[in-house]
Amino acid sequence: MDDELIVQLYWDRSENAISETDRKYGAYCHSIAYGILQSKEDAEESVNDTYMDAWNSIPPHRPSILATFLGKITRRISIDRWRNLNRVKRGGGEVILALEELEQCVAGSHDVEKEIEKKELVQAINRFLDTLPVPERRVFLARYWYMDSIQDIATHFKFSKSKVMSMLFRTRNKLRRQLEKEGYL
């Protein structure tokens, strides 16, 4: 079903909105949730929560890209769930690895008193993404938005694992420099 029709179902408060969303984007949302939570059951609950959130958000929202709208909700909910349930589970999850890698971007930041507006930081991240070549941007977001494993990224984008790791390392350094330059660190 066309996205506009699905969104209209939400506006009409039709229960079919959720079933049609599930049919079209269930697997996509599930893959995001699973990438973060590494648990089929937890991922399913996150996807269910995503539908609830979407139901509550549309209306008033009328998302232009439904997939991304749902994907962002799923990512947020899944990370929150991960924080609540699995923060200390070492070794298996990509989130803990992603966080450790992102430490490279923020390590040595002593200005802990500084309260950075999230909105401001988001704008800075998007400005940074604007500057990246397409392949680097894709690899960066595959790792830190979708939480894909290095192996999966290498497979999807046909790079070697070492190439992916090297690209990510360089991109994180670039991000760190930009954050320093813009006064966030």
């Binding site: 991304t68 990370i79 966080l99 950075i116 930081l121 938005w145 954050l179 966030y184």
Partner: peptide, 24 residues
């Protein structure tokens, strides 16, 4: 800043960039 905050901020990347990765 903590890496957690950075992870959250990356979650708000532009829709077209997120969609682009999915498409790819």
């Amino acid at each position: 800043m903590k890496s957690d905050e950075l992870l959250d901020a990356i979650g708000e990347a532009k829709d077209e960039y997120v969609q682009d990765v999915r498409n790819a």
